[in-house]
Design a binder for these strands. Structure first.
Length: 274
DNA sequence: AACTCAAACAACCGCCGGTCA
DNA sequence: ATGACCGGCGGTTGTTTGAGT
């Protein structure tokens, strides 16, 4: 824990990679394959720390990486996945072939966050939900943005609390910019229904086993929700607490209806789970 | 042409969980 | 059982680039 940076520790080179370094690393991995990053710098003859090599490869040199111009479809998907998963960039990136978590994270922080904040409808919807909780009905956009930032920071902090990290993430997204953002994708005012469809589409495409096991079951999702979720729903989700997917056509039942339903929301958001 | 400023991107940092000696 | 190491994740920072004046 708290180890110092390997680069500074060993006086290794930091900063931008040169074309020559890239070539060395690319050649080395072509021959030896990925992994064993600890040995890569030495064996390849690079004056870089292993983590730097790994990052460079994963975010830049990998042959399957698609660079630049994020399409509208990709952007749309990022927004919806972010709404669903929160700042789980690696997972979001997993749904976007050729995109890295770093790229998506950057894109979100520099482009999408501002876009979503700039949309008044999003702010309104979000503010309403916020004010219900905070008792501050005059929440302004700026404040909300701040809260959103704070929230993601909290989400990060919660990562370090062994339990409930994903709860925090999901919670944050539900009550900040993202839900309204999804709504904005369907400007006909029936964002809820549209959102349900969108989320469902996404969920159908997701690796539900991974999603279940990594987020829902890991959280003991249904324990969190308590007895408010009917047994057939639990079954539909592939066992709900039964230990790790495996159910062939099962869908993850992670629907806004669940979360917005009063009793469940209370259970979900209630202090004991956060 | 020179300067400023914001956006975009690359890279680093701190931390965690898993693995292995 | 334990401590060191490794791989991975998400947040943040630093640098580069491009538009505007």
């Amino acid at each position: 824990m708290g180890r110092s940076s390997c680069c500074s520790r060993e006086k290794l080179k930091k900063g931008a990679w040169s074309a020559a370094e890239d070539k060395v690393l690319r050649d080395y991995i072509r021959v030896h394959g990925e992994g064993k990053w600890g040995k890569v710098p030495k064996k390849a003859g690079l004056n870089r720390c292993p983590r730097s090599c790994r990052l460079r490869w994963l975010n830049y040199l990998r042959p399957d990486i698609k660079r630049g111009n994020i399409s509208d479809e990709e952007e749309d998907l990022i927004i919806r996945l972010h709404n669903l998963l929160g700042n789980r960039w690696s997972l979001i990136a997993g749904r976007l072939p050729g995109r890295t978590d770093n790229e998506i994270k950057n894109y979100w922080n520099t482009v999408l966050k501002k876009k979503l904040q700039a949309q008044p409808a999003a702010s309104t919807a979000t503010t309403v939900m916020h004010s219900d909780r905070d008792g501050d009905a005059t929440l302004k956009n700026e404040k909300e943005a701040e809260a959103s930032t704070q929230c993601s920071q909290d989400g990060a902090a919660s990562r370090h609390q062994q339990s409930g990290r994903s709860v925090q993430n999901v919670h944050c997204n539900r009550f900040n910019s993202s839900p309204a953002a999804v709504g904005d994708l369907h400007s006909d005012g029936s964002s809820m229904a549209a959102e349900e469809c969108d989320l469902f589409d996404i969920l159908k495409g997701l690796d539900t086993e991974e999603l279940c096991s990594r987020y829902l079951l890991e959280l003991d999702f249904f324990q969190l929700l308590g007895s408010t979720v009917p047994q057939d729903t639990r079954d539909w989700c592939g066992g709900g607490g039964g230990g790790g997917g495996g159910g062939g056509d099962s869908y993850v039942f992670f629907d806004d209806r669940l979360l917005l339903e009063g009793a469940i929301s209370d259970t979900w958001i209630g202090g004991e789970h956060i």
